[in-house]
Every structure is written in C-alpha cells, then in structure tokens.
C-alpha cells in the first residue's frame, strides 16, 4: 500500500516497475473483462463440471449398450432404433408432450388473470401478494403432489367429504389415476413459475400507453387486446417455456396420481435406471426427449417472434 499524504511518501519510489507481479496487475487493471471473468470462473467451472460434462456423458451412454451388468462401449444406434421400433415409446413420448402442452395451457390460462390482478389492480400490497404467490413454489414438490393424492384418492378428502355431507353415496372413481389428475397436479405445482414472468411483463407496460389507447378511442376491451395483450406476450412465452420444459420429464406426479393411464416418458426413463436396469436405453430416451423439447421450443420461439415482427 502506498502512502497517500502530501509528502508523497512511498509514491516517490514508484518509477519503472517491471516486476512480474506488477505487470500481471497492470494487465488486470487494464482489462475489465478479465477481472469479470476471473470472478466468474469458479461458478462457470462448477456449472461446466456438474452440468456440461455429465450431459455429455449421458449422450455418450445413449450410444452404448447394456450387457447384463457391464456396459458395452461400442458405438451403436441400437437404442435409438429400439425407440422408433417400439410403438409404446413413441406413443408415450407423444402423450407426454401432449399432456405437458395441455398442462402448460391450463397453467397459463389460470395464471394470467392472477398476474394481471397483481400488476394492475393491487395498489398498495403488491409485495404481500407476490410473496403469497411465490412461497408455495419453494415448498416441497413431493409433498404438494402427495397432497393431491390424498385429496383425489378413492377414500380421499373429496370423496369422503362429499359422502359425509350426504352428496354422494359411492366414491367417485375417476378423480385419481388418470391424465386429468396429472394435469391438475402439475398446474398447481408450477403456478408460480407461470405467474411471475407474466406479472413482470405486465408491470413493465408503461401506463401512459394505456391512457394513449383510451385517448385514441379504444374501449377498455379493445385496449386490452390491442395494447396489453401483445405487450405481455414475452412474459407468456417465458412462462410457457418455464412450465412446459420441466413438466415433460416429470415422473413424480404421474407416479403418484397418474395411475397406468397417466404415466409419462419420465416414468419409463426412471425405470430404465431402476427395475429395468438399462442405462443406455434410459440415456437414449432422455436424449430424444431433450432433442424433441429443443425442437419444439425453437419452433415456438421463432414462430412467436416472427408473428410479432409481422404485426409490428
């Protein structure tokens, strides 16, 4: 540390410094990005080790085969061929995607009015509402799904409740163990993920735009569809992706409330790593899911941006 007083102190001895340490420091001082990346490097390193390398390994596994207890590391497309040859896989994959899409749609439709309410109607306690919405999301996913099993079950809360109120004589069979139960449970589980991006995009809308629309003669309904709705689209897109992508691979919800008709691709993948014990096949199935998800997401994003560019 050099002295910093009127006498100059140590600053005086500070002429041609060419030591290695000084030169390294000079380089760092000169390049801001270098300092930034240095600070970022531990995080990036951890992310690469824990995400990129494992996923790369997963892809490698999908080209290998299981030989009883050993892994045969000869490169082969056998697992991918198996996927397309067994109609059950393809059908299950399509069903999973359909269910996820449906669940995403339900979640968004339910979430939009709520986000709208917080963004436009809540005047003073926005924070409280936001926290109320967010908190359940952080609490145990497993327990929230489990709660639905308890509610929808044959002897569950709804059936027993309705019977004890005398509204029902026989328990309803159709509540649990079907795709609807899965969709309902997922929509509940991912609600906060959908609300927040929509809320942010609505909150960002400049209120004077709405006043301008009114001033130019729009009725409130026209104004909503011509101004608010298009401006909230980015939030809808983000919310849609945040719900759709993770739900495709879910296996907990289908397992607990889906029954045999409600199972999804995630359950098959999971069983490959459990009972079926065919890791390469499980790897291939998840790689195929990821590719399909990526294709869908990219098509979705390009089509929405194109649609927006067209209307603009």
């Amino acid at each position: 540390m050099t002295d910093q007083t009127q006498t100059g102190g140590a600053v005086g001895s500070y002429t041609e410094n060419t030591s290695l340490g000084f030169r390294v420091r000079s380089v760092f001082l000169k390049h801001e990005w270098l300092r930034g990346y240095t600070l970022l490097s531990p995080t990036l390193l951890v992310m690469i080790c824990l995400m990129c390398v494992p996923i790369f390994m997963l892809v490698a596994y999908s080209f290998w085969t299981q030989n009883y207890l050993d892994i045969d590391k000869t490169f082969t497309f056998a697992n991918y061929e198996a996927f397309f040859q067994k109609p059950i896989y393809v059908a299950l994959m399509m069903k999973s995607i359909r269910m996820s899409l449906f669940c995403t749609a339900v979640t968004l439709v339910l979430a939009y009015p709520m986000a709208y309410f917080i963004a436009f109607k809540v005047k003073s306690n926005k924070l409280v509402w936001l926290i109320l919405i967010t908190v359940p999301f952080w609490t145990s996913y497993l327990l929230r799904v489990f709660a639905w099993k308890v509610i929808l079950g044959y002897n569950g809360v709804i059936n027993s409740g309705l019977i004890s109120l005398g509204l029902l004589s026989e328990p309803l069979q159709f509540l649990l163990y079907n795709p609807t139960a899965v969709v309902l449970t997922l929509a509940h589980a991912w609600a906060a993920f959908a609300i927040l991006p929509i809320y942010v995009s609505l909150e960002k809308i400049d209120r004077s735009l709405l006043e301008a629309a009114t001033d130019l003669g729009d009725t409130p309904t026209e104004r909503f569809w011509r101004v608010t709705w298009p401006l909230s689209m980015p939030g809808m897109v983000a919310a849609g992706l945040l719900v759709f992508i993770p739900t495709v691979g879910d296996y907990v919800t289908p397992r607990l409330v889906g029954g045999t008709t409600g199972i999804m691709i995630g359950n098959i993948v999971q069983s490959q790593f459990g009972k079926a014990n065919n890791w390469p096949m499980g790897a291939a199935l998840s790689v195929i899911s990821m590719i399909l998800i990526t294709i869908l997401v990219v098509t979705f994003i390009t089509s929405t941006t194109r649609a927006r560019a067209k209307s603009a």
């Binding site: 050099t2 410094n17 001082l29």
Partner: peptide, 8 residues
Amino acid sequence: GVPPHQRP
C-alpha cells in the same frame, strides 16, 4: 498499473 486505492 496503479489501482484506484493507491493513487494520491
């Protein structure tokens, strides 16, 4: 090469 905190 002199950082801000060492400048007079």
